[in-house]
Design a protein around this nucleic acid. Structure first.
Lengths: 336, 336
DNA sequence: CTGAAAGCGCTTACAG
DNA sequence: CTGAAAGCGCTTACAG
C-alpha cells in the first residue's frame, strides 16, 4: 500500500479551471499588472475551490528568493539566547519570512551553517556569535547574501548589533562602590569572548578611576555555563582575604556562586555581595534575588532581523548599533 | 551601485568544466549509477574548483523533497520546550535535515504554520501542541505529509509522543503521602490541556486510593506561566485550613508559589511543602530546591523527530509512545 | 558508462 | 488586458 498523498493543486490546475493561462494566474498571485476584475474573480474562485497554495520552492527557483532567513545561534538552551530568538522570530514572521534555524556550538569546526547559505536556502542571515572569525563567514560575504551579527563585532563593515557590555559593567561597579564595597572580585565568562572582555574592562576601568585595583587573584575563571560559577567561587574562597563583592559575568554563574557561598556558611549579601549580568528569569528566583545588568536581548534580535530584512530591499548601509543596558537592583548587592 | 552578488556555480558550470553532461554531474552528486572513476574524479575536481553547491530549491523542485522538517511549537520561551527543541534539532541535523521553525501561541487562530505545509516547504512535521484539534491539522493529514505530535494525543491514528504525566503525578502524590502530608492542594495548569488533566487525575486517583479527597477549594487555577503560581497560592492561602503540601502543575508555578508563601511569612517545607513538575533548571536554584517530576523533554523531541524521519522512508506504522517520568526528590517536600 | 530531453511549478520579459 | 515561451537548476527515465 503506497502512501496516498493527495496531490496538491498547481498553477496549471488553477489556470485550467479558470480558463486562463498560467501567466494570468501568476499575475493575480503576485498582484502585478492589470487584470480584468472579472478574470481576477474567476481565478480567485478557482484558487479557493482547489485550495491552491503556490509551491515555495518553485517560486524560489523562479525568482531567486526563498522568503526564509537563516538564523545561526551557538546554543538554543541558554535563556539569554532565547530572548534573542524571540526577537528574530517576531521580526521575520511579521515580514512574512520563515526561519531556518541552525544552532551550532562549534561554529568553526563543522560549519554546517554554510550549507544553508551556499545552497541558497536563505535570503539573509542573522548570526549570533561568540567566537566568529572573519574567514568563517567569508563565504557568506562573497555570496552577497546580507548578514548581520549579534553580540560580536568583527569589523569588516558587517552590520552588528551588540549590547553595551562595557557601560553595563561600569554602572554595576559604580553601584557596588557606592554601596561601600571595596574588594571586588570578578568571575569571568569564557575567555576570548568579546562580551566578557568588555565587561572585565568596565570593571577594571571603574575601579582604577576610583583608585582601586583588580588583582589577578581576585579574578576567577568561569565559562558562562552551569556549574562553572560554583568552581570559580570555590577558588575565590581559597584566597586569604574574602572579597566584599563578587561580580559574575552572567547570572547563571552568579547563581552558582550563591550556592558555593551558602555551602560554606557565608551569607549573601551580609558576608559577601554577589551580582550578575543578563537579567534572565532565574535572577529573580534565587535567594537573595540577584542584582544584575539587564541586556536588551529581545530588542537585539528584533532589530538585527529587521536590519537584514531591510538589506533585502535596498543596499545595506553598514550599521553598528549598541543597545543600552541598565542596572537592576535587587537584594544580592546588599544596598539599601 | 547594484549589489555585486557573485553568482554561484550551477550544475551547468560544473558539467562544462568537466566536459560531461549535467546528467553525469547529477549522478556523482547523488552517488547513483556507475560513473567511470576518471570521469568522477574530473567532476569532483570541477566541483571543488568552482566551490559548487547544489541549489536546495532546484533539487527540491525536481524531486519533491526539501530535506527540511517543519517544527511547530507554542512558545520557544519556555525552558521545558527548549529541551524538546534540542532533541528535535539533534535528530534532524544528524539526518542532514534542516529545521523550519514556527512558534505559535494561538495555533488555532492564525494557522501560519499551515503555510509551511501547504507551500510544500517541508517533508515532515513535528508539532508540539497543547491545544490542537483534529481539524487544525486536517490539511496536513490530507496532504500525506508525515506528522507526529508531542505532548498531546488527539487520536486519529497520528503518531504521538508523550510523557507519562499520569504516572508522574501518582508517584509524586504517593511520595507526599509517604512524607506524612495529608491535606494536598493542587495548583492547576491551563485548563483543557491534556497534560494538566492527566496530572490532576493522577493526584486525585492516588488520594482516593488512600481514602483521601481533593476538594474543589483546594484546587487553584493557574496557567503554567510566570506569575500565575503566585496568584494561585494567594487563593489557597485564603482558605481557612492551610494545606500540608501544594502540588503545582509545573516548576514555574511552584517557584512562584514559593514567593507567595515567603511573603506571607510561611516557611517551606516546615509550614507548607511545595512540589512541582518538569524538572527545569530553575527547580534546583530556588530555595528550598524543588522536589519535582522529571520529564524526558529532550528524548521526547529526539524520538518524535526520528519518527517522522523514518516515516519519510517507509510507510509509518502508527506509534503511540509514552516516555517514563520520574521523581526527583530535593528539599521542598520536607521529606528526609 | 554517458547524453539528450522532459519535467518539477513557478516568474518574467516579449508580443499581441 | 492576456497568452506563448523561455528560464530558474536540478532529477529522472529513456536511449545508446
Amino acid at each position: 500500500m503506497k502512501e496516498s498523498r493527495v496531490s496538491q493543486a498547481t498553477i496549471d490546475d488553477v489556470a485550467q479551471r479558470a480558463r486562463v493561462s498560467i501567466s494570468t494566474v501568476s499575475r493575480v498571485l503576485n498582484n502585478r499588472d492589470r487584470v480584468h476584475p472579472e478574470t481576477r474573480e474567476r481565478i480567485l474562485r478557482a484558487m479557493r475551490e482547489l485550495q491552491y497554495q503556490p509551491s515555495a520552492m518553485a517560486r524560489g527557483l523562479a525568482n531567486q528568493r526563498t522568503h526564509t532567513l537563516g538564523f545561526i545561534i551557538p546554543t538554543i538552551s541558554d535563556p539569554f539566547f532565547i530572548e534573542i530568538v524571540r526577537g528574530v522570530e517576531d521580526a521575520a514572521s511579521s515580514a512574512g519570512y520563515s526561519l531556518l534555524v541552525a544552532s551550532q556550538a562549534q561554529i568553526t569546526e563543522h560549519p554546517r551553517y554554510t550549507q544553508l547559505l551556499n545552497q541558497r536556502r536563505v535570503d539573509g542571515v542573522v548570526l549570533v556569535a561568540i567566537e566568529v572569525q572573519r574567514r568563517d563567514i567569508e563565504a557568506v560575504l562573497q555570496s552577497g547574501i546580507p548578514i548581520v551579527l549579534i553580540q560580536q563585532d568583527i569589523g569588516a563593515g558587517i552590520p552588528t548589533f551588540i549590547a553595551d557590555n562595557y557601560g553595563g559593567a561600569c554602572q554595576m561597579t559604580e553601584h557596588l562602590l557606592r554601596c561601600g564595597h571595596r574588594r571586588i572580585a570578578y568571575i569571568s565568562g569564557s575567555n576570548h569572548t568579546p562580551d566578557n572582555g568588555e565587561r572585565l574592562r568596565g570593571v577594571r576601568d571603574t575601579l582604577t578611576a576610583h583608585g582601586l585595583r583588580l588583582p589577578a587573584n581576585r579574578i576567577a575563571q568561569g565559562n558562562y555555563l552551569r556549574g562553572s560559577g560554583y568552581e570559580a567561587m570555590m577558588q575565590l574562597l581559597k584566597q586569604t582575604e574574602l572579597p566584599d563583592a563578587v561580580f559574575a559575568a552572567n547570572d547563571q554563574m552568579a547563581s552558582d556562586a550563591l550556592i558555593a557561598l551558602q555551602e560554606n556558611g557565608l551569607r549573601v549579601p551580609d558576608d559577601v555581595a554577589v551580582v550578575g549580568f543578563d537579567d534572565v528569569p532565574l535572577a529573580s528566583y534565587v535567594t537573595p534575588a540577584l542584582t544584575t545588568v539587564h541586556q536588551p536581548a529581545y530588542e537585539l534580535g528584533l532589530q538585527a532581523a529587521q536590519c537584514v530584512l531591510q538589506a533585502l530591499e535596498k543596499p545595506m548601509n553598514t550599521e553598528h548599533v549598541v543597545l543600552p543596558t541598565h542596572l537592576v537592583v535587587r537584594k544580592s548587592c546588599g544596598c539599601p
